[in-house]
């Protein structure tokens, strides 16, 4: 199925109407989620009072930090095996956006942590540490790609690193979990079904969906830019060699 999307031309056609649609939907969903989260839902004094409302940005960001790295690794794998150019363009586009949302997750976590735990940064907290290392994986990926002298080499080096990183993520997560966690246990998805109060759950899910759509739309925009950049470079190279 991926082969069908792997054609750059088809991707440009598809994304030309899908991306604006995603932007619009994302704006609506994020706006509704924030309005609900910031003004409508009651504050939870156990979670630090009004500051818990940062959750409506923090949780979507945490979800996207994980999902974007997974997406980048899958795209790298697809490129490495089948050499679909669009997969590499996708991996390249995800990296800076994934790093941005990962940073957003860290910053909102620190803002939530200060009044709740009395500290900006908690070394004992497994999730903060995992997300921090995720951030470093993104940085390393981008730095490595930037250091390669052709886009073909950047694609190969990036794919190798993203796959090695993805294989290590469970191990990093497990090792970091050996430290005691200050966070509460995972509360949105549990084996018994959602147990968080529905009043928080809906704005949270809507917010997460909105952030995901925004992320996807931005990825498509960056990919479109990259495809046009490569075409422009090809035309320039052809003009310069007079071929």
């Amino acid at each position: 199925m991926f082969s069908w999307f792997a054609n750059p031309h088809r991707f440009l056609m598809l994304s030309s109407w899908l991306a604006p649609l995603f932007y619009a939907a994302a704006a609506l969903l994020i706006a509704w989620g924030l309005w609900q989260g910031l003004w409508m839902v009651p504050k939870d004094d156990y979670q630090g009072g009004d500051i818990m409302r940062v959750m409506f940005v923090h949780v979507p960001a945490a979800w996207l930090a994980m999902a974007s790295y997974l997406g980048m690794a899958v795209m790298s794998f697809v490129w490495f095996i089948w050499r679909h150019e669009v997969a590499d363009i996708a991996a390249k586009a995800i990296a800076p956006l994934g790093a941005t949302w990962t940073a957003l997750c860290l910053v909102t976590g620190a803002i939530w942590g200060k009044p709740t735990w009395g500290t900006w940064w908690q070394w004992d907290d497994a999730r903060m540490m995992s997300v921090l290392f995720m951030f470093f994986l993104f940085l390393g990926y981008m730095a490595l790609r930037a250091a390669m002298d052709t886009r073909q080499k950047a694609a190969r080096a990036g794919a190798i690193l993203a796959m090695v990183g993805a294989l290590n993520v469970p191990l990093i997560k497990f090792s970091v979990d050996l430290f005691t966690s200050l966070h509460q246990d995972a509360s949105v998805i549990t084996p018994e079904g959602p147990k968080m109060a529905a009043v928080y759950l809906w704005p949270l899910l809507i917010s997460s969906l909105g952030h995901s759509l925004l992320f996807a739309a931005l990825v498509m925009t960056l990919m479109r830019a990259e495809i046009w950049t490569r075409r422009a470079a090809q035309i320039r190279a052809r003009l310069m060699t007079g071929d």
Binding site: R151, Q152, A237
Partner: peptide, 8 residues
């Protein structure tokens, strides 16, 4: 063979 965008 292509290097970067250049056809060798």
């Amino acid at each position: 063979m292509i290097r970067g965008e250049r056809l060798l």
